[in-house]
């Protein structure tokens, strides 16, 4: 029998703490596949953030640093400046990156830090139990927007990829979705590009991945994928927002 798909070497052989159907697991797998395919396992250093992916370092068989809430791009900057030959990636959720860590992500992009950022956008705070995220959709109910997000008092969802695509220092900014196999495949290609860019010294790359949180959305995993497709993609259009320097 010829292998078509096997478990990536760069994943540790443990059961993750993620809820059933959580697309964090898909994102992890795609990153691990990328590390394997690019042959960079021995020189990759990951940065875990605060959020559901706080234990990411348990699941990747590479060196890892766990960062304070929102600060992963700064930590990654510190690592990369000491070890420019290493491949450094930060893995952050929407609360971490788009709320408390907004300054760090924008300025890492401004500096054109030669790092890769994987940004999980699931429109909610998972770790702390389903509170409103900066990416929560208008009208979406969460424990802190129990009547639905009201733009009048709670503002509008923040669009990180669009925002960062205006930053000259950013080299590659793209948004993908993990709601079906075809999109997962596209996301994989984007992630691979984001790591390849770093290997080639091209600078800052960020891949935003639309993800589900079936537990806090209160849905089955399959319904969550459907909800993502129907509600998130219209608000967060997919695509590569920036490839290459300038503008």
């Amino acid at each position: 029998m010829n292998p078509v798909y096997t478990r990536p070497k760069s994943l540790t052989n443990v059961v993750t703490h993620y809820c059933p159907g959580c697309t964090h697991g898909i994102a992890h797998r795609l990153v691990a596949e990328t590390i394997d395919e690019l042959g960079i396992q021995g020189r990759t250093i990951g940065v875990a953030s605060v959020g559901c992916s706080v234990f990411a370092y348990n699941y990747f068989d590479v060196d890892f640093q766990q960062a304070a809430h929102g600060r992963a791009p700064a930590v990654a900057t510190g690592i990369k400046r000491v070890r420019p030959e290493s491949i450094v990636f930060a893995y952050q959720g929407d609360g971490d990156l788009a709320s408390i860590g907004m300054a760090e992500i924008v300025h890492a992009a401004v500096r054109g830090e030669n790092i890769t950022v994987i940004f999980i956008n699931n429109a909610i705070y998972g770790m702390t139990g389903g509170q409103m995220a900066p990416t929560t959709l208008v009208g979406q109910k969460t424990t802190t927007s129990p009547f639905g997000r009201d733009p009048g008092t709670q503002g509008y969802p923040v669009k990180i990829s669009e925002l960062l695509s205006t930053v000259k220092g950013a080299y590659y900014v793209a948004r993908f979705s993990l709601h079906n196999p075809a999109n997962v495949q596209r996301a994989k290609q984007g992630i691979k590009k984001a790591f390849q860019n770093q290997i080639e010294g091209k600078g800052f790359s960020l891949v935003e991945l639309l993800s589900t949180c079936s537990t806090n959305w209160g849905m089955t995993p399959q319904n969550a994928l459907k909800w993502l497709e129907e509600n998130m993609i219209p608000e967060y259009p997919l695509g590569e927002f920036k490839t290459g320097e300038g503008e």
Binding site: R71, V75, R81, A103, V110
Partner: peptide, 19 residues
Amino acid sequence: AESEVSSINMVYGAAGAGG
């Protein structure tokens, strides 16, 4: 860095990487 907050977190990363 863009702030003291960020600069000390760069220190965390850099120190962790052996600098």
